[in-house]
């Protein structure tokens, strides 16, 4: 079986002013490819730290981690940068769309970073914006768009370079329920195509029914893993 994620005994300690904070205390987690996984748990349980390590933007202290069957431990900084650029798509809580650029230009960024010619990247971006229902908004600045529209642009941006894994940090927390549901539907429909995997950190219990796998974290450890949607047995958030 191909894995999106294989984590064994992963730890991460933050040190500041002589104080050590154990953010991850031995995470074990296996996730198959093509699944939508949600990382849930109370604030400070280590969800975002774990997502950062998975995405290759934060180094862990011990344990091992393989993402998309590649060993992150064996990659240097440049290798991890290249890995992120080619194989990972990002959706951020606050969208992080560049207001100076149009929606299409924002979407084109990962493609251009991967060496695609600007004109072609814009063309692809416009196609993706059409897929997320924003064809008419392609020339608009993100500052002139609603939160839901901005998150759809961010989803299109995460998809344009056809990554194998998309990591999302609280993608619906800044949106109302209806819009959040629309965004999750689009994420499911568009992002999970072609065997792509999706890992979402969320506090939003209303979207948990979209998950194939739900990993509940507590105090830097995986407390429980559930498969499929189990209404009435929602993990503690």
């Amino acid at each position: 079986m191909q894995h999106a994620l294989q984590i064994n005994g992963l730890t991460k300690i933050f040190r500041s002013g002589g104080v050590e904070t154990h953010a991850l205390r031995g995470i074990d987690l296996d996730i198959p490819r093509g699944s939508l996984t949600m990382l849930v748990g109370p604030s400070g349980c280590g969800k975002t730290t774990l997502l950062s390590v998975i995405a290759g933007i934060l180094n862990h202290d011990s344990g091992s981690i393989r993402v998309l069957d590649e060993d992150l431990d064996k990659m240097d900084e440049a290798g991890r940068t290249l890995f992120r650029r080619r194989r990972i798509g990002f959706v951020f809580q606050s969208f992080n769309l560049i207001p100076a650029l149009s929606a299409a230009e924002n979407v084109s960024v990962p493609a251009i970073l991967n060496g695609m010619e600007h004109k072609l990247a814009i063309q692809h971006a416009e196609e993706l914006l059409e897929r997320v229902g924003l064809a008419e908004q392609r020339g608009k600045s993100p500052r002139d768009m609603s939160g839901g529209q901005q998150q759809r642009v961010a989803i299109a941006r995460a998809l344009i370079h056809q990554p194998d894994l998309i990591v999302c940090d609280e993608p619906t927390s800044a949106l109302d329920h209806k819009t959040g549901e629309q965004v999750m539907t689009i994420l499911r429909e568009q992002a999970l195509r072609d065997g792509r995997s999706l890992i979402i950190v969320t506090h939003d219990a209303r979207i948990l029914h979209h998950a194939d796998i739900t990993a509940t974290l507590s105090d830097g450890r995986v407390e429980s893993i559930s498969t499929g949607t189990r209404l009435g047995h929602s993990p503690q958030l």
């Binding site: 933007i57 940068t81 992120r84 992080n96 560049i98």
Partner: peptide, 18 residues
């Protein structure tokens, strides 16, 4: 003012040279 966008670009794999 643009640091968070540079951060996002860095996360998305923009190299130091870029």
């Amino acid at each position: 003012d643009n640091l968070k966008y540079f951060g996002a670009l860095k996360a998305m794999g923009a190299s130091r040279l870029t």
